[in-house]
Amino acid sequence: MCNFPLKLSRLMHEMSIAMNIVEIVSATVQKNHAKKVNSIDLEIGELAGILVDSLTFCFDAACKGTIAEGAVLNINEIKALGKCLDCDNEFPVEMYFAICSKCGGAAVDIIQGKELAIKSINVD
């Protein structure tokens, strides 16, 4: 099951993530007696630490020879949101280091944008 070319194995954690996706999808397919996976809907936060291109590339390799082979990955990228601990302002952020857009405070917690989940799959 794990005979990927060496160069793919160097793609760090995206390969591990792709293999987890294939595993979860395969188990779901088996439980629901499906024949074929058409598509997989993923939610990936902007700050989840996942390079979408790498994940797609790894998925193509990880799904080979499994029930998920040929499935299309639909990736819904979730925008990151920060919350200022000083004034409770919630605002879009692009990176981990964010300054509150309202009061300029630097004590900002990321409250959305780290998602890494399989929402649903479409099967025959």
Partner: peptide
């Protein structure tokens, strides 16, 4: 298991964190 095989396309909710295991 080899239960009944369905042929129509359908969507199954998964709602699982990829790193759940």
């Amino acid at each position: 298991s080899h239960g009944q095989h369905r042929h129509e396309s359908r969507t199954i909710a998964v709602e699982t964190d990829v790193l759940a295991k």
